[in-house]
Amino acid sequence: MTENTAVLAAYGLSKAYGSCMALDGLNLMVRRGDVYGLVGRNGAGKTTFMRLATGQSTPTGGELELFGASGKDLRLQRSRTGAMIEIPSFSPFLTARENLEYYRLQRGIPGRDTVDEALKLVNLADTGPKKFKSFSLGMKQRLGLALALMNRPDFLILDEPINGLDPEGVAEFRQILRRLNQERQTTVLISSHILSELSSIATRYGFMEQGKLLEEISAEALHDKCRTCLRLEVDDAAKAAAILQTQLGTDKFEVLPGNVIQLYDCLDDPKRASYALAQNGVALLAMEQKGADLEAYFLNLIGGGHNA
């Protein structure tokens, strides 16, 4: 399997609940090695897509491929995945260890150490006889993550996995995901409303709205688009570019059509740039600081005004 091989692919995927289209011809591809952040507001179809991917629900149209398999072969490939969709659910009368052991036996995962390793990984090794029903939301989230990781999956599907985690838990979770992605090349599909968190781990984003994919973009491309810069509108862009290079000693800029220059330098002291241009006879028609984070980008994409 090469780097660009699709781990999960949706082709015109649809899911209708009565007259409501939860997914409407979704086309999406998660490639091997991606940490794919699925972004969308409530009801955009993120969880529905994940539920289809995990077999909890069946599509009403289109096709879904997992590790290249589709149709009836899809189910077998799910044993290579780990998933946590919505709220983690376990038997309330069993302990963390017992719950995981139950699923280990059920899935035929060899080695009793697997359970201990998974519990250790999410810092739940010391919960002892405490039953799941007495767990805090954060502990439940951790156990859900432990279950998802127990079979050392090639592909992780995580729906709002950091809900309820304390700041320390969020940081640990971030580290775990990074480690899995880098060391085990685990591909991750993750949705979260905490976009700042998502932006710290995702390598690729899919923006969803009303059951459709609005845009798919790599983290680098998004970073470039969202980069803070000074937008300079001048009368002579070529001359201005030369001045920036010679006078300010920077090549961190882009010349855009319409005599516009995006300068990624001098952000803390914009006067330096305007002064240098003015000194050398370039008229500065407009100057503004521009930039956005993932949240602003998303809000801008869906038309603004809505919370993610």
Binding site: T54, G55, Q56, R75, L76, Q77, R78, S79, T81, A83, I85, S89, F90, Y103, Q106, R107, L147, N151, I157
Partner: peptide
Amino acid sequence: KNEVSFGI
């Protein structure tokens, strides 16, 4: 869902 998701 824990069972179905794993491909059982």
